[in-house]
């Protein structure tokens, strides 16, 4: 049990993801939603940042947002996909939720 962080912006457009990953503690979880899901892809300049975070945090991406954007393939290994029901489960499985708006 710990905190669920949500990140909803493309890492290319906002420091939301990097700022979140700087603060988020080991054992916490990060859920990428909306434009945040672009960080889930392999081969971007943010992949190393995400790989590093995966060492001690769980990273999830909202599948409907990946599909909507045509980027559901070629994802970084270790990122787990959830639907909205899974999003709800993540909020109840964690003690609190913080949105990195």
């Amino acid at each position: 049990m710990s905190m669920l962080h949500t990140v909803n912006k493309s890492p290319f457009n906002s420091d939301g993801l990097s700022s979140c990953l700087q603060c988020a503690l080991a054992g916490s979880s990060v859920l990428l939603i909306e434009d945040g899901v672009y960080a889930a892809r392999r081969g971007t300049q943010y992949e190393a940042l995400v790989q590093e975070a995966l060492k001690d945090k769980k990273i999830y991406a909202l599948q409907p947002d990946l599909e909507a954007r045509g980027v559901k393939s070629n994802l970084i290994d270790g990122i787990e996909l959830v639907d909205y029901a899974g999003f709800v489960d993540l909020t109840t499985d964690h003690d609190s939720v913080q949105a990195w708006l």
């Binding site: 710990s2 905190m3 700022s19 700087q22 603060c23 988020a24 503690l25 916490s28 003690d95 609190s96 939720v97 913080q98 949105a99 990195w100 708006l101």
Partner: peptide, 17 residues
């Protein structure tokens, strides 16, 4: 950032705008 991360983890309600 890490100290702030600890503080965040202790919260019940986080309001971001």
């Amino acid at each position: 950032a890490k100290e702030l991360g600890e503080i965040m983890e202790q919260q019940d309600v986080v309001l971001s705008f």
